[in-house]
Simulated scan of single mutants.
Amino acid sequence: MVDFGRVQKELQECSRDMEASGIKIAPVSDNLVHLSGTIPGPIGTPYEGGTFHLDIKLPDGYPFEPPKMHFVTKVWHPNISSQSGAICLDILKDQWSPALTLKTALLSVQALLSAPEPDDPQDAVVAQQYLRDYQTFKGTARYWTENFAKTSSLGVEEKVQKLMEMGFPESLVRSALEAVGGDENMALEKLCSS
């Protein structure tokens, strides 16, 4: 059974340090087993300036079992699946300890953004690019950060409006944007090719 008292305490501690760390955790539902986490992209990395959202589910055995986390925000990184957002990080698997908290887990994920482990990849394609052509990797990671992790980019409604002005029907525009994670250019390509 999840220790809800502990989860409450962890959420309070995290919100107290939010100014300093930039890390946020909030319940998605009333039952505290489904949470949403936010980490800022580390400074000096291609992820700088981005805000990354993670989905967190607590197993019944928490804190004796690790939380299940994956990125909701698309991210280009050797240890994070560009498709599913799955994270390859030892403390989220066999190196978890009940002494760790949700905040330390998110700090570890943030540290992973700064220090990829391409030899133990979650996404082989990204890892190969990281190892063989670091400049292209950096450019792609920065591009994904700009497109998916920047909150200042155009809102969904503005994108829908813009694409509808080009003559596409609203329902198609919305489904195209949804299919490509809100990337306006990719949505336009999809609309033009359908």
Score class of each variant (00 low, 15 high):
residue 51 T to V: 14
residue 34 H to C: 12
residue 187 A to K: 03
residue 130 Y to S: 06
residue 142 R to E: 08
residue 168 F to Q: 04
residue 126 V to H: 02
residue 136 T to R: 13
residue 23 I to G: 12
residue 179 A to G: 11
residue 119 D to G: 08
residue 98 P to R: 02
residue 108 S to A: 14
residue 31 N to F: 02
residue 132 R to I: 04
residue 131 L to W: 03
residue 169 P to V: 15
residue 7 V to T: 05
residue 92 L to N: 06
residue 95 Q to H: 08
residue 48 E to A: 15
residue 178 E to H: 07
residue 62 Y to E: 00
residue 123 D to M: 03
residue 148 F to P: 08
residue 171 S to D: 12
residue 126 V to W: 00
residue 32 L to H: 06
residue 166 M to N: 09
residue 73 T to D: 01
residue 82 S to R: 15
residue 20 A to W: 04
residue 176 A to M: 07
residue 80 I to E: 03
residue 19 E to H: 07
residue 164 M to L: 03
residue 60 D to T: 15
residue 60 D to G: 14
residue 150 K to H: 14
residue 190 K to E: 06
residue 70 H to M: 02
residue 154 L to K: 15
residue 182 G to E: 04
residue 30 D to M: 08
residue 149 A to F: 09
residue 100 L to N: 10
residue 138 K to F: 10
residue 81 S to D: 02
residue 65 E to R: 15
residue 145 T to M: 12
residue 27 P to H: 14
residue 67 P to R: 11
residue 174 R to M: 12
residue 125 V to I: 15
residue 161 Q to P: 06
residue 40 P to I: 10
residue 24 K to E: 10
residue 48 E to M: 04
residue 125 V to S: 15
residue 187 A to C: 14
residue 142 R to L: 12
residue 178 E to M: 14
residue 9 K to L: 08
residue 144 W to Y: 10
residue 186 M to G: 13
residue 80 I to K: 06
residue 167 G to A: 11
residue 12 Q to D: 07
residue 65 E to N: 08
residue 184 E to D: 03
residue 9 K to R: 07
residue 156 V to P: 04
residue 162 K to G: 02
residue 42 P to W: 02
residue 2 V to H: 02
residue 174 R to I: 03
residue 133 D to G: 09
residue 139 G to H: 12
residue 94 D to I: 02
residue 184 E to G: 09
residue 42 P to V: 04
residue 93 K to F: 01
residue 176 A to G: 14
residue 130 Y to K: 01
residue 70 H to E: 05
residue 161 Q to E: 13
residue 21 S to V: 00
residue 43 I to A: 12
residue 128 Q to L: 12
residue 186 M to W: 03
residue 146 E to Q: 06
residue 71 F to Y: 10
residue 184 E to I: 09
residue 73 T to W: 01
residue 86 A to M: 04
residue 29 S to E: 10
residue 28 V to C: 10
residue 16 R to E: 05
residue 100 L to S: 07
residue 80 I to G: 08
residue 16 R to D: 05
residue 176 A to T: 06
residue 187 A to Q: 11
residue 98 P to M: 12
residue 74 K to D: 01
residue 45 T to R: 10
residue 89 L to R: 11
residue 129 Q to C: 14
residue 62 Y to G: 14
residue 107 L to T: 08
residue 150 K to I: 00
residue 85 G to N: 01
residue 89 L to D: 01
residue 25 I to V: 15
residue 45 T to Q: 08
residue 191 L to A: 13
residue 11 L to A: 05
residue 89 L to C: 08
residue 109 V to M: 05
residue 145 T to G: 13
residue 139 G to C: 15
residue 86 A to Q: 10
residue 34 H to A: 11
residue 63 P to K: 06
residue 41 G to V: 15
residue 14 C to Q: 01
residue 113 L to W: 04
residue 117 E to W: 07
residue 67 P to F: 04
residue 166 M to W: 06
residue 86 A to V: 09
residue 151 T to N: 13
residue 42 P to N: 03
residue 80 I to R: 11
residue 115 A to L: 03
residue 171 S to Y: 11
residue 49 G to R: 11
residue 167 G to I: 13
